[in-house]
Structure formats: structure tokens, C-alpha cells
Design a protein around this nucleic acid. Structure first.
Lengths: 213, 213
DNA sequence: ACAGAGATCCACCACTTGGTGGAAATTGGG
DNA sequence: CCCAATTTCCACCAAGTGGTGGATCTCTGT
């Protein structure tokens, strides 16, 4: 009957399905990530995803309910993968910078997923895109964090040469990050995205360049 | 027989088809631009485009040969629209800056087309995307122009504080531009994209901010 | 070992997809 | 005004779409 995407069941099933079920679910998410990465949300059929995962397409539907829920699952899975697993006692500028750059570095090893998010970000400009809300939240989280850090640093170091507000600067950085990803997919290997991002962040945060005099 | 997408015919037909043909062709391109803008290349059917243009889908095929050729036509049409119509005798930094910012300003009035290019840029990361080559050329053109201008300005004004190379800085600017477009589609009306882009360019070109003290 | 929950596949549905072939209508230069 | 070139639509195609229903296996706690 495919009542799959039940968020949490307080009393229904005992645990979380069988082990084999969880395995194929994972395998489906990975195939979906790769497929969406190359052809977008529209443009990818659940059947093709299921085929790559080695299962029937109705099995996929059984696990996720529908195509949209699968997309959301892929995004969630990706975010879980590229998040710092634990926070230090004090959140320093260096920690934030390093976390972001580490994420960018990690992204190099999964170009497909990065492209997926590029496509989805672009597609989600349409008001009724199924992933719009999730991506808005994603974006807000990151730019708010950066803007907040910039503001903190400006207060602390007494920086005020920048005509752009912390929010604007943060928006520029996030935008540049996303844009550089697209550029890198279009011209593979020309730019060192993590390094450039690192420079951008240090500039905005008033940190010294790492190898400079 | 649909031998449509003949670039130029040296001796075949007399002019360029009939007037009515050219008109519907134009109308189809516009509908296609809007449709692609909202749902991407994949994700948009030729039938839906034809319906919005008020013609049968086979008429569309007759004019453009196939879906891919239509996409290329849309991109070409968009570029023709947002190019400065004539060049001045001398190409100054101010002219370049103003042209780019004017383009960004013009883009505000056609959010659909901008989103189309965002989606296509992201989709074109796949090596076999039909629009990949065209978009690579597009991107190269713009970033080369900006990098060249930065280099010229640095030589002329003796600027050398920037640790980033002209090419890197140009890549950042173009990336930020593209990224800001996506951000703007995701959070309409929060940022003033042309103004931010203007600031970015003046910073890179060593020009004074326009309304500053 | 048993029973119920879960997982998987097959057959099927109505619908959309990009593209073809041909026949009828329209256009415009001679 | 005429006739070939062009435009347009209708009917059709094979393939693919997301999703459903039901039958058959497999797992796992008891």
C-alpha cells in the first residue's frame, strides 16, 4: 500500500524496517543522487534510478512514496554527509572558516552531488518547485552564519572599510561559492575552488592569508 | 520534411521564409524561453511550448528540427537581446562596467530568462549536455573580458595588493553574479543585484564608488 | 517454528514524450 | 493571377512517464 514516508512512528512498527530494506533504501538514494546530478529533478525518471540501483521501480516507490520525497531524502542525505560531525566548545572564526573550506574540499570528491545542488538551486527559483523550501532554509542557514561571523569580526577588530553590509558580503561569498561550483563543472580543473573560497572568507573575516608574508 | 535548422542557405530559398513563418518562429522562441526558464531543458516538453505559443507541436518541430536546436535558438536570441548594440570609439573601463551593470539591471525585468541560464549553466556541467559548448563559450567570453580589464587597470594604476590573479578575481565576479541571480530567485527582492555587482566591479577595477564620500 | 511485518517484483494503468508522414491551407514573387 | 514554396494541422507511432494492486517471497522477534 506504500505508506512509506512516515516520519516517525510512535507505536506502529517496532524498529525501522529490516536490514535489507535499509540497505536498498541507501543504495537507491545514492543512485538517485547520481542520476539527479546529471539530469536534474525533472529529466530523471524513477525507473532509471531504480534500474541503476538494481531494483524494480515499484520497490523504489514503496520505500519513498513518490519522486518528490525521494528528492528530499537525497538532499537530506547529502547534508548529513558534509556536515561537521561535532562542534568544539567555543565556535571560533578559524573553526568556521576551516569547516566551510573543508566542505568545499570534500565537495571536490563528489562532483555529481554538487552539480545536483546547483541544478536544484536553479530550478528552485520557480515558486512551486518541490525542493524550494528546503533549499531556502539551507541557503539562509549558511549566509546567516557567515554574515553573523563577519559582523562579529568587524565589531571585534574595528573593521569598517567595507562599503558592503555583512549580509551583502555574506551573500556575495555564498553566491560566489555556488557560482564557482558551476564554473568548475563547466571547465573542470581550471580553478582551485577551496583555495579561492578560503581567500574570500579570510578577506571578509579580517584573517591573515595563510601562506603570506 | 523538416530540414529547418539550416544556418544560412546560399542558394536554396529566396529570402528567409514567409513573414508569417518568421512571426510564429519568434513567438515559439519566446514561449520556449519562458517554459525552459521554469522547468529547465529536460522537464519541458515541446508540446507544452507549442501549446503556449498557440501552434501544434509538429509546427514547432518543422521550424526548429528538434528540441535541442530550439534550445540553442533561445540562448542565441537571449544573447542578442542583452548585448550593447554598438561600441564606442574607445573601450573604457567605465563603459565595460556600465555595460555589465546595465545588463544586470536589464535582467531584473526578465527573471525567467535569467533562471533559464542558471538552470542551463548547472545542467551543462554534464559533459553531454546539448548546450554545454555554447555556455562554455559564453562564460569564457565574459570572464576573459573582465580579467583582461582587471589586468589592464592593475598595470595602469599600479595596483598589486590583491593576492588573487586577474583570472581568479574575474572568475569570482562572474560566479558571484550567477550565484546572486539564483539567490535572488530564491529570495525575491532582498538584494540589489546590479548595485552589488557594480560594487564588485569597481573594487576589482580600482574605480571610486559612485556615491561615496 | 511460527506469524505477522516488511520487502520485492510483475502486470497493468492512463498519460505524456519526441518525432514522422501526409494532406490541406496560406503566402508571395513572377 | 498563378503555382511552387512554405506553413500549418491532424493522425499516428513507439517509447517512456509516475503510480497502483496484488501475489510472492524474506526477515525477525517471540
Amino acid at each position: 500500500m506504500a505508506d512509506a514516508p512516515e516520519s516517525q512512528s510512535t507505536s506502529t512498527s517496532r524498529s525501522d524496517g529490516y536490514a535489507s530494506g535499509r540497505a536498498t533504501k541507501e543504495s537507491i538514494v545514492q543512485s538517485a543522487a547520481e542520476a539527479f546530478s546529471q539530469r536534474g529533478f525533472h529529466g530523471t525518471s524513477v525507473r532509471s534510478i531504480a534500474r541503476e540501483a538494481g531494483v524494480d521501480h515499484s520497490t523504489l516507490i514503496h520505500h519513498f512514496g513518490n519522486k518528490t520525497a525521494l528528492l528530499l531524502a537525497v538532499i537530506e542525505w547529502h547534508d548529513e554527509q558534509s556536515m561537521p560531525r561535532e562542534l568544539p566548545g567555543e565556535i571560533t572564526v578559524e573553526f568556521i572558516t576551516e569547516s566551510i573550506v573543508a566542505t568545499a574540499r570534500h565537495n571536490l570528491s563528489t562532483p555529481g552531488l554538487v552539480q545536483l545542488l546547483s541544478i536544484l538551486n536553479a530550478e528552485a527559483g520557480s515558486p512551486d518547485h518541490p525542493a524550494r523550501e528546503a533549499l531556502q532554509r539551507r541557503h539562509d542557514l549558511l549566509s546567516t552564519l557567515i554574515a553573523w561571523t563577519i559582523r562579529r569580526q568587524r565589531d571585534e577588530l574595528g573593521m569598517d572599510e567595507d562599503p558592503a553590509s555583512p549580509e551583502e558580503r555574506a551573500a556575495i561569498i555564498v553566491a560566489a561559492w555556488d557560482g564557482l561550483h558551476m564554473y568548475d563543472a563547466l571547465h573542470p580543473g581550471v580553478l582551485d575552488v577551496p583555495a579561492i573560497l578560503d581567500g574570500l572568507l579570510r578577506e571578509a573575516f579580517g584573517l591573515p592569508g595563510q601562506g603570506a608574508s
